[in-house]
Design a protein around this nucleic acid. Sequence first.
DNA 1: TCCTGTGTACTGACCGGTTGGTATGTTACG
DNA 2: CGTAACATACCAACCGGTCAGTACACAGGA
Lengths: 199, 199
Amino acid sequence: MNDEKPDMRTLIAEVSLALFEKRGFTETSVQDICDELGVTKGTFYYYFASKEALLMDIHEQYIVTLLEEQGKILADADLTYREKVRAIMYMLIRDIEKRGARGRVFFREMRHLNDERKAKIVPLRNQFRLNIEQMVREGVVAGAFRYTTNPKLAAFALLGIANWSYQWFHPDGELSDQEVADAFAAMLLEGIEPASRDR
Amino acid sequence: MNDEKPDMRTLIAEVSLALFEKRGFTETSVQDICDELGVTKGTFYYYFASKEALLMDIHEQYIVTLLEEQGKILADADLTYREKVRAIMYMLIRDIEKRGARGRVFFREMRHLNDERKAKIVPLRNQFRLNIEQMVREGVVAGAFRYTTNPKLAAFALLGIANWSYQWFHPDGELSDQEVADAFAAMLLEGIEPASRDR
DNA sequence: TCCTGTGTACTGACCGGTTGGTATGTTACG
DNA sequence: CGTAACATACCAACCGGTCAGTACACAGGA
């Protein structure tokens, strides 16, 4: 639908993303990016003020999209708390397929942003986590989660499980994203021990 | 006790580790390392064949130590399966305090090893995961874990929770390493939902 | 006790190559 | 003719790595 205008700016961003994922930000030179596109550095610097500005673009786009998607899930009044946990887990695992490269670059290359730029991204990333934390907190009050649950740690656990998948999960493997997300959600919700003996 | 000989090789490795953690491998030049020590590059290359050889040293030392420690836990016949899960979780969280910089550099900078060197490290890292997987598998057979548990995914979940802590956990925060590890182990073993209703 | 040989630990100058970035064209098109 | 969209040529800084040379500790022989 919208592939009519392969405008150069978007093209540069896409190619860069792929190269950043494969080789890393520092190891990818502006020249590499230009070679891949068959243009020269003049073109690159016509569209981007610096290599870092390009990286910032990628980061901003990614985290903003992610926050929007999360917002829809958490605001959905039809979902129970356990369904929200499952939905967020699925959203993150599925994200590996949908925006895999973006995610990996996001986690790995953020430190190459200067302090000012990082100060714009980090709060957004934290907000994503705090939203989950808040959801768990409400779930505890509502009795959907154990009263002993530490919402902060639960949020970190969920993020840890999901984000670590970037290291190993390939969507074309033996398990689908849905199956992996379901299994992870079940572990976090119900644990891996057999149902209650005497707790 | 053994701080009599601050031999230069060890010194270089220590300083490098700190710089690699702070700035990253590529962003730390050999000159930076030398400046920090007040020596020249000749000295560096007298002790290390290359910058990458130094990185390999750090990686090898880290993963081997980790595997040894894990081996002791998994081989301990006095521990139940749930205690093994708790012990490994604690070992990994505690590791952040003990060898935090080493861990962070390990996760982040491995890709800068050449193929040959990576081929030595990756199997060791995989072995660490496979050992956990095997333990879970045995636990399932023994009835200590749900028969529905996917050992592979359970191992990834455990590693995800623990390793993600490298991103946020500070040993001097409000929670101790033991408390965090206990909470994480409890979530994975028992889940965050209230005890069984009808499952 | 002095002289001489030798290995260790290190210096400082230097190399070819690459980097992000810039200043200055040139071209095509409305 | 002017402006948007590029190309070309170049720069200073920095990179990992090399190498000839040297200060010095120490051993052994006369």
